[in-house]
Amino acid sequence: MDTSTLILLGHNGAGKSTLIRHFLGYYRRESDHPFLKTWRDIQPLDKQKLGFVPELPWLDAQLTGREQFQLMAGLKSCRISRDDMAHLTQRVGLDTGALDHPVSHYSKGMKQRLLIALALINEPMVLLLDEPLSGLDPFGHEQIMSLLLALKADKHLIISTHQLDDAWKLADQIWVLQNGVLVFQGPRPDSADALSQLYFRYPPHGADSVHRNASLC
């Protein structure tokens, strides 16, 4: 299957997470969110065909990993066997034994991997990942990064991130947002440095004056 990975870049508050929520259809058409006016051409995706990994582990901490699987499978109106769960957990590098423990006992990296495994239920064509690499230690970062590179082979990925090196490794297409406006759409630049230059070309509005004031002090 021909797949591609789209990376969403932009400063804090540029609208990356909002765009992901827009992809998920979380806003009504008549929503008064100011960014939505600039994205009239971007349509929400078909929820039947996508899996979503949120920025934070918004999971019920009282439930075990296995129960999270059962809940998510139920929400996607499909059945999941213990073998399917074991297969998905192994695919994301999570210990199968962890499935019988409540999520409150999981580390951040484990939660992140569980979220990816949950998103993979029903084998969606598209995976939406909102800052999947933030807040991880170098070990966790490495594990999630190699998982994403493996997923890239057979899924369309849409990832928002601030990690420019990782973005360059993963990207086929780059979108840059600045204050809610999609200011750049194009293929991955030739090098990570070129991507970095592209990123810094679009600071948040008001950042220039902040820089100037800082240099005067």
Binding site: L24, P54, L56, L59, D60, M72
Partner: peptide, 16 residues
């Protein structure tokens, strides 16, 4: 829990 832990975010990524 719904609001503090945003437990509705993930379910609504499905067709719920």
């Amino acid at each position: 829990k719904n609001t503090a832990e945003k437990l509705y975010v993930l379910p609504f990524s499905t067709s719920l």
